[in-house]
Structure formats: C-alpha cells, structure tokens
Computed example of a mutant assay.
Amino acid sequence: MASYELQPFKRFDAIHLVSAIEQQNTIINVGFWVRDPMQLIEWPESTQYKLSRADFLWENSCFEIFIGVKNEDFYREINLSPSETWQSYQFEEYRYPENVPPILATDIELIELKRTHYGLNAVLDLQLFLTTHQLQVSDIYIGLAAIFKTAQGTQYYAIQHSSPEPDFHNKRDWLHEF
C-alpha cells in the first residue's frame, strides 16, 4: 500500500488530506483521509441513489482519480462524491475532447463507494479498461486529487502541482505507479 499526503494548490493549513492506494490484480482500493478540525469543508448532501452516476461532481467537494497509460495519450478521470455518487470520463489526450461534461467512460467498474467518518473509500475494477486496451496493471499510473468547497473558498489538493493554475489533468502530477 502506498500513501500520499496531498498538497493544497495554495498554502492552506486548515485542512490536511492523506490518500492511500492498494492494488490486488485488477482491483484498486483508494482511501482518502481528511482532517478538517474547523469543519470548513462544505460536503454535498447524501443521495438516496447510492453508487449512481452523476455529472459535474467537481462543482462541489469531491475526490478524483486519474488513470494514465505509460507512453499513451488517452486516460480516464474518475470523480467520487461524498454523496456516494460517481462518474468516469474518457479523454483521448490532454483535456480532449473538450465536451462538457466529458465523454462517459464505461470501462471502469465501481465496486464500492463509501463515505466514512474519516473521508471516503472507493474500490474500482480496472479489468475491462485493461483488457480493452491490452494493458497490464504495470502499464498504468495514477493521479489522486480532491476539490474542497470551503467557507474560505475552493481548495485544490493533489499529490503535487506543477502547473501555474490548479490542473489535475497534468500527467506530470500523476505519480503513483504499480
């Protein structure tokens, strides 16, 4: 299991975020642990439609996983909401196509998404994605990120930020490899 302390784009000491990822065959388990002692984060309301898909989750507090492929331009973006809704998008290359919302990806399966007292946990199956593109788990790399709507404005967290503006699509910041 690997863990990362996600960094705020701009200095923001009020919230701390740690993420961990583990892999077993084609299954990845990702946990996000949030420390928000002043309770600044504005969490989305839970929905009665658990594990349903919804667009525009990034407009509220949410967690994101990016799946890149070594030596390839295409990638997947997975949005995970504490409301226990989710979405998966496909891109051919950096932010392309430019559809809003992006084009739905159906080759990532969400097995479990659970809001916990510490944050969020998600279990994803990458089997169809890997099989469709004739990949091994060792061919992919992962970016982990979060957007928090707070009383003090929107905060952007990622493993690292190498762009002048918050940009979770920047593959240089996707540092986890299996």
Results as ranks from 00 to 15, higher is better:
residue 169 H to W: 09
residue 126 L to C: 03
residue 58 W to D: 09
residue 139 D to H: 11
residue 90 Q to Y: 10
residue 82 P to C: 09
residue 62 C to K: 05
residue 130 L to K: 00
residue 132 T to P: 00
residue 53 R to E: 12
residue 66 F to L: 14
residue 51 L to K: 15
residue 95 R to V: 04
residue 166 P to C: 12
residue 149 K to S: 07
residue 163 S to D: 14
residue 155 Q to F: 01
residue 84 E to Y: 05
residue 62 C to R: 06
residue 29 N to Y: 05
residue 149 K to D: 09
residue 11 R to A: 13
residue 110 L to P: 00
residue 57 L to R: 04
residue 73 D to R: 06
residue 86 W to E: 02
residue 47 T to C: 07
residue 40 L to M: 12
residue 168 F to P: 01
residue 53 R to T: 13
residue 100 V to R: 14
residue 48 Q to R: 11
residue 114 K to R: 10
residue 100 V to I: 14
residue 100 V to K: 14
residue 142 I to W: 11
residue 125 D to G: 03
residue 114 K to V: 06
residue 139 D to G: 04
residue 137 V to L: 14
residue 32 F to Q: 01
residue 52 S to K: 11
residue 129 F to W: 06
residue 178 F to G: 05
residue 143 G to H: 01
residue 136 Q to G: 00
residue 91 F to I: 10
residue 111 I to N: 07
residue 132 T to A: 03
residue 2 A to T: 08
residue 98 E to K: 15
residue 20 A to R: 12
residue 94 Y to D: 14
residue 140 I to V: 15
residue 123 V to S: 10
residue 169 H to Y: 13
residue 132 T to M: 05
residue 120 L to K: 00
residue 138 S to Q: 15
residue 152 Q to C: 11
residue 3 S to G: 00
residue 4 Y to R: 01
residue 56 F to A: 15
residue 28 I to K: 07
residue 137 V to Q: 10
residue 171 K to C: 06
residue 80 L to W: 08
residue 94 Y to L: 15
residue 16 H to E: 10
residue 18 V to E: 11
residue 173 D to F: 08
residue 95 R to E: 07
residue 55 D to K: 13
residue 97 P to K: 11
residue 58 W to F: 13
residue 96 Y to R: 14
residue 10 K to Q: 14
residue 51 L to P: 02
residue 149 K to Q: 13
residue 75 Y to Q: 00
residue 30 V to D: 03
residue 32 F to L: 02
residue 4 Y to K: 01
residue 110 L to W: 04
residue 13 D to F: 04
residue 172 R to F: 07
residue 171 K to L: 06
residue 134 Q to F: 09
residue 104 L to W: 10
residue 122 A to E: 03
residue 77 E to P: 00
residue 110 L to N: 01
residue 173 D to R: 08
residue 57 L to K: 02
residue 58 W to I: 07
residue 94 Y to C: 12
residue 158 A to D: 04
residue 42 E to V: 13
residue 122 A to H: 02
residue 175 L to F: 05
residue 116 T to A: 06
residue 157 Y to P: 02
residue 31 G to Q: 09
residue 124 L to D: 10
residue 169 H to T: 05
residue 174 W to R: 02
residue 146 A to C: 14
residue 119 G to W: 02
residue 75 Y to R: 01
residue 92 E to M: 12
residue 166 P to E: 13
residue 177 E to H: 14
residue 140 I to G: 00
